[in-house]
Design a protein around this nucleic acid. Structure first.
Lengths: 113, 113
DNA sequence: CTGGATCCCTCAGGATACTG
DNA sequence: CAGTATCCTGAGGGATCCAG
């Protein structure tokens, strides 16, 4: 979040990992659709660049939320899945989806900046 | 989140509002401490600049999550509180805090980028 | 297919000074 | 007290090309 994720506050630390662009959405997609391959994620997240997708996956892997499994085949088969720790976000993700859909149904729209 | 918050996906739309730097933390602070004045928020969120705090408050107000009340006194008294819609995030905020504290107690630390 | 490597560029966000 | 008004920087992110 702020400086180098060396915040003293647990909430800030967690948010620091999850609040990058696409990050929360990426996690949400994985919660909704289960383990996915790189290409599949690109299709599930229209508009994300390979660079950013790679960065996010690496960072979430380093955070212990994501598992990267590479099959030694040609062409390579790489699958990303949530670790047990990643799965602990399940309730949060569900809650997020619930609120989002409810507000959407109520006609709520964010400001147009 | 991505372009101009004109995403088709409800989840993306909600995240677009909440995912700016400090934003989620600001909401969390308001949930934890109740209505606060500008100066109090600055103290509760060490490191945030007046500019960014102002921006976030304005954007959340425009989103209907926050209420801004100004007393016509001198010096001015401005209080920010969560609207009913903002309060609907309560469960999410609590869940966030729970996970953050638990992981923290487990010794979890984000990667040092 | 799954990325790594580059280049480029915008703009979010920080710092500072000033005002009603 | 509660903000505006500027200026400026850097890093986040897009596009493209290349490689194992």
């Amino acid at each position: 979040m702020n400086e180098k994720n060396v915040s003293c506050c647990p909430v800030e630390r967690l948010l620091g990992v999850v609040s990058g662009q696409w990050t929360a959405y990426l996690l949400w997609v994985l919660h909704q659709n289960g383990p996915q391959r790189f290409g599949a994620l690109q299709k599930l997240i229209p508009g994300i660049s390979t660079k950013v997708l790679t960065e996010r996956l690496r960072m979430l892997e380093a955070s212990g939320l994501l598992l990267r499994e590479q099959a030694a085949t040609i062409p390579p088969q790489v699958t990303y899945s949530l670790t047990p720790r990643g799965l602990e976000l399940r309730a949060l993700m569900d809650g997020l989806g619930d609120v989002a859909r409810r507000w959407d149904a109520e006609g709520w729209r964010p400001p147009v900046r």
